[in-house]
Design a binder for these strands. Structure first.
Lengths: 193, 193
DNA sequence: CGCGCGATTGAGTAATTTCAAATCTAGTGG
DNA sequence: CCACTAGATTTGAAATTACTCAATCGCGCG
């Protein structure tokens, strides 16, 4: 087992119990992929082929509406997953951009390989079920925060939970993640209200 | 197979392929539950024991914040599932209320039974994995709409997608689902802007 | 039949956006 | 390594969006 896969192995161990053999099988379904800064791994109209685990680096998923406004859907740094979820699970064209914000190293599994993996061993199926369940819970918490909190409260909560993110992603991306304008976030940060 | 379970059977068939035998096993893990109008099936501080499929009726999940303001998290009518998702999957105390808005008939599975069911047959595991995946995708679409659309746009999209809901749930519940005040929704509806 | 909750309306206010200009910053080529 | 530039952030002022509070209306349920 390569040293660089340690965090991934750890990630898996936190979710399911696998034998050494199973672990090897699981990990070997993933391919190492390096992406340069500003490189896109997913673009609208192309179907998302991969589910991506971030070994190293930082990426951002966002959509662009008719007026050209960006909305950040997801951030990912080390030990996070990222893809256009809708596109990946339904295997239909993406609506998102997923771009590397830093030079990054990913572990990629493609859709067909994932299906085969899951059918080959119920433990693998369980792993993806647990991932999906937690994603749902996570998304639901985000919905709740979005509809119940003010812009300032959303930003403060964001800082508490993801202090790393604010160092590694541009302010305008964070603003659009939190559903507010760049200017307004700037004013919140600098207490200009 | 009882006639009243037909919609449930159909719901399952759309997601996985089961033998007659498997279908019987699966369905028998659920218990029929009738709830009266205004009855709570989940309350804050109590752990959500059940995942609930709605055979008949209408329910609403909501949270109440420190200032006493309600926010609707989810609606459920026939052929929808409802629970406090966070509470159920992590088996920790709920933060939501789930209340029957109409007299309703539910199919309930409790947490332990669900675990046993999943471990007894990979097909059942697949079913819950697919449910969770689709929930994540669904939640993500809701997040996107929340951060990209104005109040009016959110309401219009809601009407298109869930025209049934606006008949069966009170206006203030829909407003809080969409993250706006009751008064503002009323003005949108009646073009008083 | 009336009570009470939910929906509507009006007026004033708060939150947030928009637009435009100024300032800062990081990356690029010379 | 520095100067330049494009992009990112900040600031100000005005406009818009949405909320709050209070009063009224409407209607379904007991």
């Amino acid at each position: 087992m390569k040293e660089e896969y340690l965090s991934f192995k750890n990630h898996i161990n936190k979710r399911i119990l696998l034998s050494e053999n199973e672990m090897r099988t699981f990990i070997s379904a993933f391919k190492l992929k390096k992406v340069r800064k500003r490189q896109f791994i997913i673009q609208p109209d192309f179907t998302a082929t991969y589910r991506n685990y971030v070994l190293n680096g930082a990426l951002r998923a966002y959509v662009i509406n008719d007026e050209g406004q960006e909305s950040t859907i997801q951030f990912a740094i080390e030990d996070w997953w990222i893809t256009d979820y809708n596109s990946y699970i339904y295997q239909k064209p993406a609506t998102m951009f997923v771009m590397a914000v830093e030079e990054s190293i990913l572990l990629q599994i493609d859709y067909d390989t994932e299906q085969r993996l899951k059918h080959s061993n119920p433990n693998f199926e369980i792993f993806f079920r647990i991932m999906a369940e937690r994603s749902t819970a996570y998304m639901q918490r985000r919905v709740i925060e979005n509809i119940t909190l003010t812009a300032k409260e959303r930003y403060e909560k964001f800082l508490l939970k993801y202090s790393d993110f604010s160092q590694r992603f541009p302010q305008y991306a964070i603003a659009s993640y939190l559903g507010m304008s760049t200017e307004f976030l700037s004013r919140i940060k600098n207490n200009k209200l």
